[in-house]
Amino acid sequence: MRPFLLSLLAAVALVLVPAPPAAAAGSSPTAIPLPGSPYGDPAGSNDWACAPSAARPTPVILVHGTFGDRRSLLDPISLAMKRAGFCVYSFDYGNRATGDIRDSAAHLGEFIERVREVTDADKVSLVGHSQGGMMPRYYIKNLGGAAYVEDLVGLAPSNHGTTIVMDGTAIGATGLCQSCAQQAAGSPFLVDLNAGDETPGDISYTQIVTATDEVVVPHTSGFLAEGPNTTNVRIQDACALDLSDHLLIPMSTAAIALTLDALTHEGPASPGLKTC
């Protein structure tokens, strides 16, 4: 097995749980928002009776990373957003996000439509971990998503991939994790995704990375091209004592504070925010 898969699988083994059961064949895609899961939803999320308020009119959707599920690592940030007054949602996609990222982006689009229909919201904000911070960019760029997204916050996003993938083609050929191959630095998928404008649309882009990232390497590959609607920030810039790594960044106090900052005012997060 390639070194990348060995290290990545060892890391995610800390949080993996069995995949939730698939929806019943022939069931309506809109009748029940999510299939049942013995592991449930992130704290405070998927309240389908939640009504966005005048102060918090934009629902927030959490997007998990590779090998994760809709709850893995996301309880603290979900609860923080719920307590801040947001309607929060989370979903499973792509066979634990190992499938083709393009198909996962289409699934994201379907889930966004569900949330918009239920909440009567024009747009949603997206908060994604790892692949979950990068994958929505495909939806925005190629699937018409720019019209429906207010903010995109990436937590250690794999925007420009990782150099620890030794042979992305070989990994993809195994059929175990197509998205792993697509997240290799320089992969055809990422070359196409990052061609031209990296931050299209009237969207605020916030990339929150950590200097201790051992999966997205180098950690600066999570940054996007600078612009008026873009903030690139390390959690160590907000709190030098916060050493959260790739897996723990969704639970990082600094990352959560930066995320809430991005979601509660116009534009992306304030890069000079201090949290400790």
Results as ranks from 00 to 15, higher is better:
residue 223 F to Y: 14
residue 51 A to E: 09
residue 67 F to T: 12
residue 214 E to Q: 15
residue 207 Q to N: 10
residue 74 L to R: 10
residue 227 G to W: 11
residue 210 T to D: 12
residue 215 V to C: 06
residue 89 Y to T: 01
residue 247 L to Q: 11
residue 152 L to D: 08
residue 255 A to W: 02
residue 112 I to Y: 03
residue 121 A to D: 02
residue 184 A to Y: 02
residue 185 A to D: 01
residue 266 E to W: 01
residue 38 P to S: 05
residue 181 A to E: 13
residue 6 L to Q: 14
residue 31 A to S: 14
residue 14 L to Y: 06
residue 166 M to W: 09
residue 224 L to R: 14
residue 214 E to Y: 04
residue 40 G to S: 11
residue 72 S to E: 08
residue 156 A to M: 00
residue 33 P to G: 09
residue 242 D to N: 14
residue 79 L to M: 10
residue 167 D to E: 05
residue 152 L to T: 06
residue 38 P to N: 04
residue 189 F to S: 01
residue 68 G to A: 09
residue 17 V to T: 15
residue 152 L to P: 05
residue 141 K to H: 02
residue 114 R to N: 02
residue 135 M to F: 11
residue 186 G to I: 06
residue 36 G to W: 05
residue 9 L to K: 07
residue 91 F to I: 02
residue 215 V to D: 10
residue 100 D to M: 06
residue 79 L to T: 01
residue 270 S to G: 04
residue 143 L to I: 07
residue 170 A to L: 14
residue 80 A to C: 08
residue 71 R to Q: 10
residue 262 A to W: 05
residue 168 G to A: 11
residue 141 K to N: 06
residue 201 G to W: 04
residue 231 T to G: 10
residue 86 F to H: 09
residue 9 L to A: 12
residue 23 A to G: 13
residue 138 Y to R: 10
residue 31 A to H: 09
residue 70 R to V: 08
residue 175 G to Q: 11
residue 274 K to D: 11
residue 226 E to V: 15
residue 88 V to I: 11
residue 124 V to P: 12
residue 147 A to K: 15
residue 158 S to F: 07
residue 41 D to Q: 02
residue 249 I to L: 15
residue 78 S to D: 14
residue 187 S to G: 13
residue 271 P to I: 04
residue 98 T to M: 09
residue 67 F to E: 06
residue 132 G to N: 12
residue 17 V to Q: 13
residue 84 A to T: 06
residue 150 E to Y: 11
residue 173 A to R: 14
residue 198 E to Q: 12
residue 198 E to M: 04
residue 113 E to Q: 13
residue 45 S to L: 01
residue 7 S to A: 14
residue 258 L to H: 09
residue 147 A to H: 10
residue 225 A to Y: 02
residue 143 L to C: 01
residue 228 P to C: 05
residue 150 E to S: 15
residue 198 E to G: 04
residue 168 G to Y: 04
residue 12 V to G: 00
residue 233 V to K: 03
residue 111 F to G: 08
residue 195 A to Y: 00
residue 48 W to P: 00
residue 65 G to M: 02
residue 141 K to D: 05
residue 181 A to S: 13
residue 120 D to F: 01
residue 41 D to G: 04
residue 66 T to L: 14
residue 184 A to E: 15
residue 78 S to F: 05
residue 252 S to Y: 13
residue 160 H to D: 07
residue 168 G to I: 09
residue 161 G to Q: 12
residue 200 P to R: 03
residue 143 L to Y: 03
residue 260 L to N: 07
residue 218 P to F: 11
residue 241 L to R: 08
residue 194 N to Y: 01
residue 150 E to C: 06
residue 28 S to D: 15
residue 22 A to Q: 05
residue 19 A to G: 04
residue 261 D to W: 12
residue 42 P to R: 13
residue 34 L to A: 12
residue 13 A to C: 11
residue 115 V to N: 02
residue 162 T to D: 09
residue 256 I to T: 14
residue 14 L to C: 08
residue 114 R to P: 00
residue 94 G to N: 14
